[in-house]
């Protein structure tokens, strides 16, 4: 990472100098945010490395929290493209993306290939094995029976359900709980980090909990969680149902696509399935290896996969 930062910096400084001389050549330095979850970071790093190795561009990677600042950065022209937005977690799509009623300053280029699926989860030690406290907890219909198990100081007579952490995400936990008559107090922890920290702490102490989570996510590499079945998703039933599939997108601005059709063509061609990505995530989060190193290795071993993505140049 260190070396990359340094090259990025040098490159950006170089670009700044060239920009002062106002030569168009400056444009081949792209800026892209590093997603703060491993999956998103992997997707982008693959694209960055192909751009650098095969297409002669350079990319400055900017570490920043994913969210509105990324959207604003794109809109302001300070970022060029970003990876793996999950539409239901995007808090600003209604403001910027045409399909959702926004002003069109941001464009979803193409699906990543990774499909997200949200749900309510309980730890495996709660439902399986010796001394499991809720062996029959399988579906949403069993939740009320076990509500006492999930009671806390603050939740009163109800059980505590650790809901979607950010209120702007499209989880509709309250509508779902009301529709399914769940006798649960929904707790919103404010940030994704706090959400996982709470789960990790409870898990370490083997306490019972039922919490919102989704796949693919690195947390499943650390905690063994089992999904609680919800009524199947349908458009009419939503949100009193399971979640729909979340098709994730790589995205950027319309103007970037006009200026650099070749780069956006690469992004449009890119596809990666959940299981392909999971392998890379495991190497990073479980084996603790560096992101750029893992991606480099993947590129070396999978040329037949990514070579066709590279658009014909010239």
């Amino acid at each position: 990472m260190k070396a990359l930062n340094r090259t990025g910096l040098l490159a950006s400084a170089g670009a700044a100098l060239i920009a002062l001389g106002s030569t168009p050549a400056a444009a081949d330095l792209f800026k892209s945010p590093v997603a703060d979850w491993t999956g998103g970071a992997v997707t982008c790093e693959i694209i960055h490395q192909i751009l650098e190795r095969e297409m002669g561009h350079r990319v400055k990677r900017i570490t920043m929290p994913s969210g509105p600042a990324v959207s604003e950065g794109l809109r302001a022209g300070d970022l060029d493209y970003a990876c793996e937005t999950w539409p239901s977690y995007s808090t600003t799509k209604e403001k910027y993306v045409t399909e959702f009623g926004g002003d069109g300053s941001i464009r979803y280029y193409a699906p990543v290939g990774v499909i997200g699926q949200s749900g309510y989860y309980v730890p495996r030690y709660l439902v399986e094995g010796e001394g499991a406290l809720a062996p029959d907890l399988k579906t949403w219909e069993d939740l009320n029976r076990y509500k006492d198990l999930f009671k806390t100081l603050e939740s009163g007579d109800k059980g505590r359900l650790i809901a979607c952490p950010v209120s702007a995400w499209e989880c509709k936990d309250h509508d779902r709980a009301a529709g399914l008559d769940l006798e649960y107090e929904l707790v919103e922890l404010g940030s994704e980090t706090a959400h996982w920290a709470e789960l990790k702490g409870l898990y370490a102490r083997k306490e019972p909990f039922v919490a919102y989570a989704w796949e693919p996510h690195w947390i499943h590499a650390t905690l063994d969680l089992v999904e609680v079945e919800l009524p199947p998703y349908s458009e009419e039933a939503w949100p009193v149902s399971d979640w729909p599939e979340d098709v994730t997108y790589n995205y950027g601005t319309p103007s970037f696509e006009e200026e650099h059709p070749d780069v956006v063509a690469l992004i449009r061609n890119f596809r990666m399935s959940n299981s392909e990505q999971a392998e890379l995530i495991l190497a990073i989060d479980v084996d603790g290896r560096d992101l750029d190193e893992v991606v480099e290795e993947w590129l070396e071993n999978n040329e037949e996969v990514w070579r066709p993505w590279v658009p014909d140049q010239g």
């Binding site: 570490t63 920043m64 929290p65 600042a69 990790k200």
Partner: peptide, 19 residues
């Protein structure tokens, strides 16, 4: 770091989001 300023803040943030 919330608006993409690099430095120690970004380093802390990146670490803490992975717990």
């Amino acid at each position: 770091t919330f608006i993409g300023a690099e430095g120690l803040g970004a380093e802390v943030w990146r670490a803490i989001t992975r717990l």
